[in-house]
Design a protein around this nucleic acid. Structure first.
Lengths: 354, 354
DNA sequence: AAGTTGCATGTAATCGATTACATAGGGCGG
DNA sequence: CCGCCCTATGTAATCGATTACATGCAACTT
């Protein structure tokens, strides 16, 4: 054994505490460190007796393998990087929870990077992955490291498994987990049209965004399916934020002739927009119907409650984590996973009054 | 398809790509690995010439120090654990952003643990810190590892620096970063009373919660300062969620005699409550004034917009991260940091009509 | 009975940095 | 001119696990 009482457990005398190492466990169980390691990693390759002694010694010492040492040797970190554009956005945080849950169950930890639109951070995290700090990454930001959103620039040389979540990354040969944005947008558009609305405004996301492109496509398809013409004048630019919704609302109330329905491509925008048009004295849905997208928690308690498209956010996170874990553990995973959305009908949309 | 293609260096010859190690840099700069290490960690202890050669070699090779090796030897991870009760809650996610920002600037990474009320996860993360996976932790959950919220149980032996954020941890000798919940609640109560309300309901947080205790105390103090009696019948139990607000609202509308104002201790509850009372045909604020707490983004666009207490969430996160970094780097930090809140007057509260 | 196979285990190399200690050389005081 | 100190640098130990390889032994084959 070590000097005097080896590391001295404090339970009792308050001596200095030193975490147990594999060596301590090995000594206590009267086996080699190799056997301890095997008892944990590949129990079937160790005799039941040895295993029992090892487990007992581990329980007694409170041994926890040192992750740095383990990583250094095995080149595995059991850490996953999650890259997202805005941590403070409700939409992402529920997805994160799904990710975290699943990773946790599989024994992985999660490191979060809020890019915040900063190229410096992006470079940093690219180096991060290159340095072997994580085994894999889930990208929620719609583009690869070092590449701008429109696909320009050299993607950094990342050699670890990646998974794209929500925003598909065009041209990247990695699994994509998403919803069918086009179909969902089309469905909502047809829902509005089916209620008699023929003048439907569309509040967009950022133009470069993949989601936006798909939803916009879906919007146009929906119009077409309903036999309505597409009028570019009814497209109001937005960026998914509450403020953008407020701005869009101001633009609407200022107009002489107004659409009878507005399809906002995020609930935040829908809520901001409703707020503005209500303040201007219009009624929702009597004077104007408003639809959202995402079904965030506040959609159900907005005033009026918001008709929207529900995205299974938690499940999206879980699916992405599962896909990544599959890759990390050498299994295969589908290149594209699409989860179902749901049209949630509430009070902010009404039939066009006669 | 892994071999041959993936893993080999695209720039040029297609030789196998292997991340540069300190050895490679040392060779290229014609110095020892010790000098490379010193050139990075303590540049002033290396001659300018050697430093220049090292930096050049690093640029050329794209060398990034292997964190596992560094950690193993130096016992520093440059990682911070953030423990929080609910990742999907808007309130926390904005705080997280403040934390992440500050940690990032100081060269630290962030690992997030969403406890989700699970003791198993808690044990896991306690082991996590014990295993030296992080240098320090920020606790947003109001209690120490292994200790239930009411302070029972042995706190796990955590030997790394900790900081408590938002929810002070009674009895723990660690820096606490928070707002003055009592003063803020008292202020809001007096605001309501000052508008003529003498029957003010209070929708509480979870009873065991430290925030709740302080806010409740502040509520009672505010009543007293305004010369109003405290009536236990006007206290409605809640837990900060939208659903709790909805439930509280249902309870209110069912009552024969109603208070003229309601102070909800979270914006989520206020919004849920408003929704319910509005649906029941009451008007806010004409029939009943509603106040919230936190000033989340949706407070400003609620219908009506919500009078509330603004917590500087981003700054809280930044302050906690700064305090922790100070501790990690051997500096001292105040035991208690209190950030200012602000009473935000909007439309959900009105003077008591004559 | 000799040879083969395979299991359980131990020995020691290894991962890639940091850092304690050793050493060489240059400047300076006496 | 000698010795001392200080600076810059190199050598090698070290962090704590995993794992390639070696070994001993029992069981099984022929």
């Amino acid at each position: 054994m070590d000097e005097a009482g080896q590391g001295d457990r404090p339970d009792g005398d308050g001596a200095l505490f030193r975490a147990a190492r594999i060596q301590d466990v090995a000594r206590l169980a009267d086996v080699s460190t190799a056997t301890v390691s095997r008892a944990l990693a590949t129990p079937e390759r160790v005799s039941p007796e040895a295993r029992a002694r090892v487990l007992e010694a581990i329980a007694k010492t409170g041994y926890v393998p040192n992750p740095a040492a383990r990583t250094l040797r095995s080149q595995k970190t059991y850490m996953v990087l999650v890259v997202l554009p805005d941590l403070s956005n409700t939409f992402f945080s529920k997805i994160l929870r799904g990710i975290e849950e699943t990773l946790f169950e599989a024994g992985y930890g999660m490191i979060i990077s809020d890019l915040d639109g900063s190229p410096a951070k992006e470079a940093h995290f690219a180096a991060f992955t290159a340095a072997g700090r994580v085994d894999g990454a889930i990208l929620l930001n719609g583009h690869l490291f070092g590449q701008s959103r429109d696909g320009e620039g050299q993607p950094a040389r990342i050699t670890i498994p990646l998974v794209a979540l929500c925003e598909a990354i065009p041209g990247a040969d990695i699994p994509q987990i998403e919803i069918d944005n086009r179909a969902a947008a089309s469905r909502m558009t047809q829902h509005l049209a089916g209620l008699g609305h023929s003048s439907i405004a569309y509040v967009s996301g950022p133009a470069i965004n993949v989601l936006e492109r798909e939803r916009f496509q879906g919007f146009k398809e929906g119009l077409q399916a309903a036999g309505l013409p597409y009028d570019p004048a009814l497209v109001i630019p937005g960026d998914y934020t509450i403020e953008a919704g407020v701005a869009a609302g101001e633009r609407l109330v200022a107009q002489a002739t107004r659409p009878t329905a507005v399809f906002c491509t995020s609930d935040e925008m829908a809520i901001g927009l409703m707020r503005t048009v209500l303040s201007a004295g219009l009624r929702v849905p009597e004077d104007i119907s408003v639809a959202g997208f995402d079904d965030i928690d506040f959609a159900a308690v907005a005033e009026p409650s918001l008709t929207t498209i529900r995205q299974p956010r938690r499940e999206l996170g879980q699916a992405a984590a599962t896909a990544l874990i599959d890759l990390l553990q050498g299994r295969t995973t589908p290149k594209r996973i699409r989860l179902e959305t749901e049209l949630v009908v509430r009070d902010s949309v009404a039939p066009l009054p006669r």
